[in-house]
Amino acid sequence: MSRERVISAVIATCTCLMAVAAGGWIGGYRLNLTPSEPLGLWRIEPLMRVAAVGDLVFDCPPASAEFAVALERGYLRRGLCPGGVAPLIKTVVALPGQHVEVGSDVVIDRLPLPNSAIRPSDGAGRPLHHFGGGIVPSGHLFLHSDFASSYDSRYFGPVPETGLLGLARPVLTFDP
């Protein structure tokens, strides 16, 4: 095959891949490569109501120094949310006005949250600082994942509702 044909084939393949990726992004499709939720293809479904406890959602965390450190440490992936991070897939576990206590695990309105043990350090031995607890402020959500090593509101606290992209719906996923 001539050099020109190879170059043309590579350009055509790259163009097709970019078109598929752009169509997927515009269509609300996202690829999850983190263990917080099953791996695979997910879709963002518009949330046509107020968020509720139990909703599995996509959320863009706010751009902050804390999330910049989380990205640097590898807790978050790169993406198109503010601060250059990918959206999180988490479950809403507390709403504005609810009381969250964080000790060795999480307690919401005096009820223990299953699978919420607090880790003192990450997998590399670096200290993890956890949220101090308190009332979830107006306009914020407390997010959680059952995955033991998940970076969620146990560590960064409530996040603004303005980062909520929609419900997270699995399309083609698997648990390794």
Rank of each mutant, 00 (worst) to 15 (best):
V57S: 02
H140C: 12
G24W: 09
G97N: 02
A86Y: 04
V85E: 11
V20H: 04
V92Q: 03
A65P: 09
P114N: 02
R30V: 09
N32I: 06
L41M: 15
K90N: 03
C81L: 07
L71T: 08
A21R: 10
E66F: 12
A52S: 10
V100S: 02
D122W: 07
L56P: 04
G40D: 07
P82Q: 10
M18T: 13
V50K: 14
C60I: 07
A68T: 11
V69S: 09
E45W: 09
G125A: 08
A51I: 05
H99P: 03
E101C: 00
V107S: 08
A65V: 14
V50Y: 09
T34W: 04
S104N: 14
P120A: 14
L39S: 12
P61K: 05
S104W: 11
K90A: 05
S121K: 11
A124F: 13
H144Q: 02
T15L: 15
G103K: 13
D59S: 14
A65L: 11
L71F: 08
G139M: 11
L71H: 08
G123I: 10
A22K: 10
N32L: 08
K90V: 00
M18P: 00
I118A: 02
H129L: 13
C14G: 15
G23T: 12
W25V: 12
D55K: 03
K90T: 00
R78D: 07
P87E: 00
E72V: 05
H140S: 14
R49W: 01
P114S: 08
E37D: 11
A21F: 07
E66Q: 15
G24D: 01
W42D: 04
H99Y: 06
E72N: 14
A124L: 11
G23R: 09
G139D: 12
P127Y: 11
A63V: 03
L88F: 09
H130N: 09
A51D: 03
I44D: 03
I11H: 01
A12P: 13
K90Y: 00
H129C: 06
R73K: 10
A21V: 05
G139N: 01
H144Y: 00
A117H: 05
A22F: 11
G79C: 01
F131M: 01
C16A: 15
I44Y: 06
I44W: 08
P137E: 06
D59Q: 12
H99I: 06
V100A: 02
V20A: 10
H129T: 14
L80P: 06
A19R: 14
H129R: 14
P61C: 10
G27V: 15
P112E: 02
N32R: 13
S104I: 08
T91L: 07
G40W: 07
